[in-house]
Design a binder for these strands. Structure first.
Length: 206
DNA sequence: ATGACGATTTACT
DNA sequence: GTAAATCGTCATA
């Protein structure tokens, strides 16, 4: 499978959020195990103007430094005292925009994902519960702050490969999840997902 | 030094 | 539907 090039990432966050649907995220585990999933849900965060973005108002801190860096790198952050979430940095330097990966359709390493998602639970999680949420997919793939700033174009442990093209007619645009504090920005249709895909996160109330 | 707050998930009523 | 879990980060002082 072909690795996505640096050029793929150098576009605005909305275009990247749409283009990422259908592509394959690959994580090579410490023991060489290949964990992979097709991206089926994303959200665009539009830089300093976007009240929902960590870079809103020009905020530039140690935490969100990766957002300000070059496109094609990962921005992994820690929230709620227990979860990690992964973004793909879009555009380029001085335009801190990124795309949050919200859900994957598991393709490889399902048993390892199940193990990493189990976390002391007795029940066996169905495939649809492995990567159907930003923190779920991070946990399934074993992503943490060690991957913050990781180069997805040249890295060996975390990268993206060319998958299938999702026709625009199969892409649904909707308001982003969990950003009600962002006022009018919370209403904008910056969440994108593959229509009817069972691995999309279940959040339809608003 | 302190306190409020999450780009969430899960379990429970 | 509601609430708890849980802590790094950042704004304020």
């Amino acid at each position: 499978m072909a690795r996505l090039s640096g050029k793929f990432y150098r576009r605005d966050a909305v275009a990247l959020a749409r283009a990422l649907l259908g592509q394959v995220l690959v994580r090579v585990g410490p023991d060489g195990v290949r964990l992979a999933g097709r991206i089926v849900e994303t959200e665009a965060y539009l830089g300093v103007a976007d009240r929902a973005a960590h870079s809103y108002g020009g905020r530039r801190t140690a935490r969100n430094a990766a957002m300000w860096g070059p496109a094609g790198h990962a921005y992994v952050y820690f929230v709620y005292g227990m979860h990690y979430c992964m973004n793909v940095v879009a555009a380029g330097p001085e335009d801190p925009s990124a795309v949050l990966l919200r859900a994957l359709e598991p393709l490889a390493g399902l048993e390892r994902m199940r193990l990493q998602r189990a976390a002391g639970r007795a029940v066996v999680l169905p495939d649809e519960a492995l990567c159907s949420g930003p923190a779920k997919l991070a946990q399934a793939l074993g992503l943490d702050r060690a991957f913050d700033g990781a180069d997805l174009v040249h890295g060996e442990r975390l990268f993206l490969e060319r998958g299938v093209r999702i026709p625009p007619t199969r892409i649904v645009a909707a308001p982003r999840i969990g950003v009600d504090y962002a006022g009018a920005w919370a209403e904008r249709p910056l969440r994108f997902y593959v229509a009817g895909n069972p691995h999309v996160s279940r959040h339809f109330s608003r």
